[in-house]
């Protein structure tokens, strides 16, 4: 049904390119723009010999550019300026949720420990970091919860209080120097430890 109509349109446009093209196309296009585009792709393989196709192509682009903007003009406005920044704000921090309860928490990984320069610094809980204290920093365990940290290889374990927040996910837990020492980590730092909520 459409095809014969299309051919006729093409023929009309073909012969009346420079004469009545503008006025006639304007009239036709509003009613049949989609067919126009779909046919355009088809005839190209059929008639590659036509060297006059480019001028023809240059005409239809004018039509869709004038037509679609009118439709999309209302829609993109709210989309473009508001959405992208919103996404950045929402997705940047990647904050893991703080657990409500340390009980039942079990995880294995590596531990790091505080240096002498951290001695006396204020922790997330407000306590002052004590090098000889049995404390730790963790990403998600609730502050002031107690956990048992165990050296898997030796079986030695210590109980520490989580009093600081760990924002670096390169290690599972950050121990006070004395806790790390009691686990034998000061001699062999890269040993797997297990953290178990109490």
């Amino acid at each position: 049904m459409d095809k014969p109509v299309d051919f006729s349109v093409i023929l009309v446009s073909f012969f009346l390119v420079g004469l009545v093209g503008c006025s006639s196309v304007e009239e036709v296009v509003p009613t049949e723009t989609p067919p126009d585009l779909s046919v355009e792709t088809n005839p190209q393989p059929i008639g590659p010999a036509h060297t006059s196709v480019p001028p023809e192509v240059s005409v239809p682009p004018e039509v869709p550019t004038t037509a679609p903007p009118q439709e999309t003009f209302d829609v993109p406005r709210p989309e473009e300026p508001v959405n992208p920044p919103k996404r950045e704000e929402n997705f940047k921090p990647h904050k893991p949720a703080i657990l409500q309860d340390s009980r039942g928490y079990v995880a294995r990984g590596y531990a790091f420990w505080y240096g002498v320069d951290d001695h006396g610094a204020k922790t997330a809980s407000g306590q002052l970091h004590d090098l000889y204290g049995m404390t730790a920093a963790h990403a998600t365990l609730p502050l002031l919860s107690r956990v048992r940290v165990k050296n898997i290889r030796t079986g030695r374990s210590v109980v520490v209080t989580v009093n600081d927040r760990l924002y670096d996910d390169s290690v599972l837990i950050k121990l006070s120097y004395w806790a790390a020492r009691r686990l034998g980590l000061d001699k062999r730092p890269s040993q797997i430890i297990e953290v178990r909520g109490l």
């Binding site: 002498v116 001695h119 006396g120 610094a121 204020k122 090098l131 120097y177």
Partner: peptide, 27 residues
Amino acid sequence: LLYHGDEPNSTKAMFIDLETEIGTTYW
């Protein structure tokens, strides 16, 4: 002194240094 505790400023105190395995600590 860079002390971060909650004690009032008028609290009387003294400065202590102690040698640990990983360096000098201050109290």
